[in-house]
């Protein structure tokens, strides 16, 4: 072996020692200071450590698949007993205590949580290639498993462009409904207990989740399902793609939705809350395109549209109907 080769051996050995040492239960502050000094001693140390750690993670992340593969290549019975009878006997004695521990100790899939603040948009690409565009005021979590892809949407609105993978369905839990897809593009929203799913490409199934009652629907491109959480019924209506996807280009498109929903959408985009006290006004159907340039301008145009005025009220704006008879 050449001198350079031996050097590499050293770096690899020390890096592996550190990865394992840092995972030890009796890790001390002195260990950490030594670790810090070792990293600082040579850039090769840092590179070797990063490589060892990445490989260690790769094994952990793929633990389940690797266990399966190994058990297939392994003889049916563990070989330990043949080589180390004493160890096997001890292992058998210890096994009782350990068996209970194993399920809890497996590295559980860790959901990744994504959230957007008021007025914030965000695009992300998952490791499977799926793209998700988050509208403002949205929170969802993602777990990619070997046999299925799980998303839970707590609140908000997002467009999903799901990478096709027939063996790994993509499931979105949203309120009391589950959205199931294989590979397609669609918009899901949940604001104040109102759910909607709008499909722009492919096919999507929306079914009651868990104990919830109701029918399952299969949606095709150009269809929108609307549902009030807790209700049994869901309504399917035609929808143009820009109605669902317009928010990504900074505009909101409505065809007969109640003003209350428009206001809920705007409140996710702008910091100053808009309120409607008048029930009749809240139910006014809105059709049109709202360009999201600035809150003052948007509120002014919206007020014109519904013959209302915007009155400042404790930290927000309240929409009030303009009394018609007086004129």
């Amino acid at each position: 072996m050449t001198g350079a080769g031996a050097q590499h051996e050293d770096w690899r050995g020390e890096a592996a020692d550190w990865v394992v040492r840092l995972q030890a239960a009796d890790l001390s502050e002195a260990d950490l200071l030594a670790f810090d000094a070792w990293l600082a001693a040579a850039p090769e140390n840092t590179a070797a450590y990063d490589a060892a750690l990445a490989l260690s993670h790769e094994f952990e992340v793929n633990a389940e698949a690797l266990r399966e593969e190994l058990s297939r290549t392994r003889p049916a019975r563990p070989t330990l007993g043949r080589f180390f009878p004493a160890a096997a006997a001890m292992a058998a004695a210890a096994a009782v205590a350990v068996v209970v521990v194993v399920p809890a100790m497996r590295p559980a899939a860790r959901p990744a949580v994504y959230a957007t603040a008021t007025g914030e948009h965000r695009s992300l690409t998952l490791a499977d290639g799926t793209r998700i565009d988050l509208n403002a005021g949205t929170r969802l979590s993602v777990v990619l498993r070997r046999d299925e892809r799980d998303v839970r949407m707590d609140e908000g609105q997002a467009v999903f462009d799901v990478a096709a993978d027939a063996r790994r369905p993509f499931l979105i839990a949203v309120g009391d409904r589950t959205v199931r897809v294989v590979g397609t593009q669609f918009d899901v929203r949940r604001r104040a207990g109102r759910l909607s799913v709008t499909v722009t490409r492919g096919t999507v199934e929306v079914a009651p989740a868990g104990e919830a009652k109701g029918e399952a629907f299969r949606l095709h491109p150009g269809q929108r399902l609307e549902h009030q959480e807790g209700a049994v019924l869901a309504k399917v209506t035609p929808a143009a793609p820009d109605q669902a996807l317009g928010w990504r280009a900074g505009k909101l498109v409505y065809r007969g939705e109640p003003l209350a929903q428009v206001v809920a959408d705007l409140n996710a985009q702008f910091p100053t809350p808009i309120r409607i006290d008048d029930v009749k006004l809240a139910a006014t159907p809105i059709s049109g395109v709202i360009i999201l340039d600035g809150q003052a301008a948007v509120v002014r145009r919206l007020a014109l549209l519904v013959s209302a005025k915007a009155v400042p009220s404790d930290g927000g704006v309240t929409l009030q109907r303009i009394e018609a008879p007086g004129r």
Binding site: A112, A127, R146, R168
Partner: peptide, 30 residues
């Protein structure tokens, strides 16, 4: 926002890579 990166994909290793990992582990001393 809460998460900065795409989540770790549990299925991220390809069949071929899994095979490499398994062979390497199987080749270790017992």
């Amino acid at each position: 926002e809460v998460a900065e990166d795409a989540p770790a994909d549990e299925a991220v290793a390809s069949r071929q890579r899994l095979r490499q990992l398994v062979v390497a582990v199987a080749g270790l001393p017992p």
